[in-house]
Design a protein around this nucleic acid. Structure first.
Lengths: 245, 245
DNA sequence: CCAATAGTGTCTATTAGACAGTATGCT
DNA sequence: AGCATACTGTCTAATAGACACTATTGG
């Protein structure tokens, strides 16, 4: 930095600019069986008392939004995020002046994925907030549920992002343990796309190119043992296209 | 709103929350020939005095970010945005605490597209700011140019978004007049992807399904007259895949 | 043996990409 | 005529999607 620039910054007095509170909201996804679930908190206060809402919180002065999202994810789930192979990415920013009736809050929404074995959802311990978060099936909530603020719009945006992204990446594997079978992966796709139309045979052929076969096999009670894979390439080429409903 | 809720909001006193200045930055693209250009302003003050920067400004108290982006686009270009068929969409939010050394400024970056006839770039009148914006070829700036703040990262994100989006949508047509020829459209693709590998014949075949033939033809000095199209479907199916470089 | 799952084989219709060929209009 | 551009035709290799088939396990 030049001496001139240092002098400038030292003497800099900011004009009055409109200021806002900066928050993050989280759409946390996890899969059981062939169902896509998201984490919700039940609001204890007005506005939107007793309605479902997405977990979230304010961005601290020394954090960027992504760091705040990771912190809130850990605080609101109480989980070991390493064990759950958590993935967090920025989704979009919601900035309508009236989205929170109390004051101006701009929210940077984030998409978070947690790994499960496909059988049980992670236990959501009560974090710093009074009420623990709960898992609910995404497609049910979008069909029926009332959500606080603009959280329905955020949830829909997150689902759209995830549904699109797994067409051309192996992001779906972030919803599974590091090692998984093709059947597990196919169930994740079916959960996210809310469909049962994925042919197991064709799915195998299209995916194996991007996967690494561990050489080991695993058995799930019934049926032939299944090969265990890890992700080799993060990108699918050609992409797997979502079937028309 | 219930009486109880009204009472709550009336008596609501916000706690102290960290506040930030909220800004928008704009990546404004337009095409001439087979070159993708973006609009830049030359900074007159520290920090980053004399460096190139993206146009932008602060979000006003009663605006959301998208509205602010439209307003700044009009102010900084001085153009009739209707005539240029402007398209603006949110790109991503940049929130590193130190991205502006003067104070905390969180920027919601936006992608803007302006239509040209493919021959000349719109004249950028000097707006409310002292210096007029200028057009520069995007790939040159990314290769050589120094940009202020984190604007190189924003520019790269915008280019990536546009390059990806035109694979499966006709967003590229927003860089052309409402009516255009397939040759014009192909030049836009080549400009955005920085390639010359698009076969004109195959391009015709793949695009015509999503386009509406006006029935009219137009001639450009040399060669056979070209059919004039408008956009019929915003989505391309199947997508047009970017050739490997 | 039966049921359920894993994974491969096969067939057909469609498509991409390369490139040839024809038509049109300007100079 | 000569040339540049617009667009269609054709060929080949690759692919998707449907579905049959075999193999392997537990009950």
């Amino acid at each position: 930095m030049s001496a001139e620039e240092e002098r400038f910054l030292k003497d800099y007095v900011p004009r009055e600019y409109p200021s806002v509170a900066l928050a993050v909201d989280l759409v946390v996804f996890a899969v059981t069986g062939s169902t896509l679930n998201a984490a919700f908190v039940r609001r204890g206060n007005h506005p939107f008392k007793d309605a479902l809402a997405l977990p979230g919180g304010f961005v601290l002065p020394d954090e960027d939004a992504l760091t705040a999202a990771w912190r809130e994810l850990e605080e609101e789930t109480g989980l070991d995020l390493g064990e759950h192979r958590a993935h967090v990415e920025q989704l979009a920013t919601f900035s309508s002046p009236k989205r929170d009736p109390r004051m101006r809050v701009v929210s940077v929404a984030h998409l978070a994925l947690l790994a499960t074995d496909g059988r049980t959802l992670p236990d959501l311990a009560r974090g710093s907030d009074a009420a623990a978060a709960e898992w609910l099936p995404v497609y049910n909530v979008l069909a029926d549920g009332d959500l606080a603020f603009d959280h329905r719009e955020i949830l829909a945006a997150a689902l759209g992002r995830l549904a699109g992204k797994i067409e051309y990446t192996l992001t779906a594997a972030r919803l599974l343990p590091e090692e998984f079978t093709l059947n597990q992966l196919r169930r994740v796709y079916q959960a996210v796309w809310n469909t049962t139309r994925l042919d197991a045979g064709n799915f195998t052929r299209k995916m194996t190119g991007a996967l690494q076969d561990s050489g080991r096999k695993v058995t799930h009670g019934k049926g032939a043992p299944a090969a265990v894979f890890t992700v080799r390439d993060e990108y699918l080429s050609p992409p797997l296209i979502r079937p028309a409903k």
